[in-house]
Amino acid sequence: MECLLLYIEFCKIGLVCVGGGYASMPLIQAVVVDQYHWMTIPQFIDIFTISQMTPGPVGVNAATFCGTRVAGLPGSIAATAGFVTPSFFLCIFVMYLLKKYGEITLIKGILNGLRPAVVALICVAGLSFVYLALWNSETFPADLGAFDMKGAIILVLALIAIRKKIGVIKLLFLSGLLGLLLGLAG
């Protein structure tokens, strides 16, 4: 039963997530964190972080992780299969349309409407990252004074490093190291 639920929920995510890794994040978060509580926001962000450093798209990684936690190996297969099922049929269908009609303005219109929406949704998801980094809180912090100085230092340094075009893996590695050092320093 759990496997079926995983399959169906990830099917839905796969059907509507447009725009690649970062764009699928808010959708996955809405389902696995907010709706089913399969994982917490810190765990979700860990998955996102791990996905940046390991092979494979963040979508497949999140599906695999959720699936394993909910129902073991069968769960991870069900979730991942669910995630890619809509893509498979859609891609084949579009290949067929392309062969037949060449140009499809309706699909282009739909995608044009979705692109700005995806930006908005990434902003919303990004906010929960910021709350966790700076206030160790999953939603808008009730107590703004409970500010995490160490988190803020790492975040600002990381932003500067990104502006200097540092690679993602190096950045995450160094952030982790800094977290350890600041943690040990008390």
Binding site: D46, T49, G179
Partner: peptide, 14 residues
């Protein structure tokens, strides 16, 4: 501690 640091790094990426 390491994960906390990495979360901040990931936040910067986002």
């Amino acid at each position: 501690m390491i994960l906390k640091g990495m979360q901040c790094g990931a936040t910067a990426i986002i």
